Computed example of a mutant assay.
Amino acid sequence: MSIENYRLATIEEFIGRELGVSDWVVVDQARIDAFARCTGDLQWIHVDTERAKRESPFGGTIAHGYLTLSLLAPLAMEIGLIPEGASAGLNYGLDKVRFMTPVKAGARVRNRVTLVSVERKGGGRVILKTMNELQIEGEEKPALVADTLAMLVA
């Protein structure tokens, strides 16, 4: 996706504006299980579907918070976070993360991204701060809100 007139040279004009909303992506049990294996976080509330149906206050398994956090970058890239004129965008860190609502296995989520600030560092480097809201289809509260930092390289 491309954001009209969004370029490295004009990026300051977009401060305070919503850059876009990604498509919906399914957080299914297979994705949750793969994340659990990759990270070693095999807590039953994520991977034991039968036990979670019986004992979880959510009626089934839920995604790891860090799995939902990891979805922000690819969904921001989908909307076109890296502007024309930048050769690369690198994760630079997080300023704030709050996990608001668990994501149940099978739920669909999307990322709503707003540009908060732009800091030109010299040498063709620019730090973007964005506010990300990972929304859950059919839920009033988002899964998480996070201020993320990306370094752009011209």
Rank of each mutant, 00 (worst) to 15 (best):
V118K: 02
A107T: 02
A107V: 01
E18K: 13
P57Y: 10
M131K: 15
E139M: 07
I82P: 09
K96E: 15
A30G: 12
C38M: 15
G89H: 13
A154V: 04
R98V: 09
T68F: 07
C38T: 11
I32N: 01
I82T: 08
V21D: 01
G60F: 00
V126Y: 00
M1G: 15
A105M: 03
S117T: 02
A34E: 14
R37T: 11
Y92K: 02
M100F: 05
L69S: 02
A73C: 08
R17M: 09
C38H: 14
T10C: 04
R7S: 12
A76T: 10
L69K: 07
A143M: 12
V116W: 11
G16P: 11
R7Y: 05
A76Q: 06
F35Y: 14
E50P: 11
K121I: 13
L75R: 08
G106N: 02
T61N: 13
D33Y: 10
L42F: 01
E13A: 11
A146Y: 10
L69G: 03
L75A: 04
I32H: 02
V97W: 05
G89K: 09
G20Y: 07
D95V: 10
M1W: 13
S2L: 07
N91D: 09
P142K: 04
N132T: 04
L19R: 09
R125T: 15
V126S: 00
A143E: 08
I3R: 12
R31T: 09
G123Q: 04
R37N: 15
D48C: 10
D147Q: 13
S87W: 08
E140R: 15
L152K: 03
N132H: 03
S117P: 11
T148N: 11
I45M: 13
E18P: 06
I45K: 13
T39E: 06
G59C: 02
E50S: 09
A52C: 05
D41I: 05
G124C: 02
A76K: 05
E55A: 08
A76D: 10
E137G: 00
M151I: 06
E133G: 03
G16K: 12
M77H: 14
M77A: 15
Q43W: 04
G138E: 02
F58G: 06
P142C: 01
N132I: 03
T114P: 08
N91G: 08
T101W: 05
V113T: 13
C38K: 14
Q43M: 07
T114K: 13
P74K: 01
K96F: 14
S56N: 05
C38D: 14
A150S: 13
G89V: 03
G93C: 10
L19Q: 07
R7D: 02
D28W: 06
M1S: 15
G106Q: 01
G40Q: 01
K53V: 09
A105P: 02
R125H: 13
R98C: 06
W24Q: 07
S87M: 12
L115S: 13
G60M: 01
R54E: 14
G16D: 05
K53M: 09
V25E: 14
A146L: 08
W44L: 00
I3H: 08
A150P: 06
L128V: 06
G65P: 09
K121R: 15
P74M: 00
N5H: 08
I45Y: 13
A30S: 14
R54Y: 02
I45D: 10
M77C: 12
T68P: 03
Q135I: 14
L69R: 04
E140A: 15
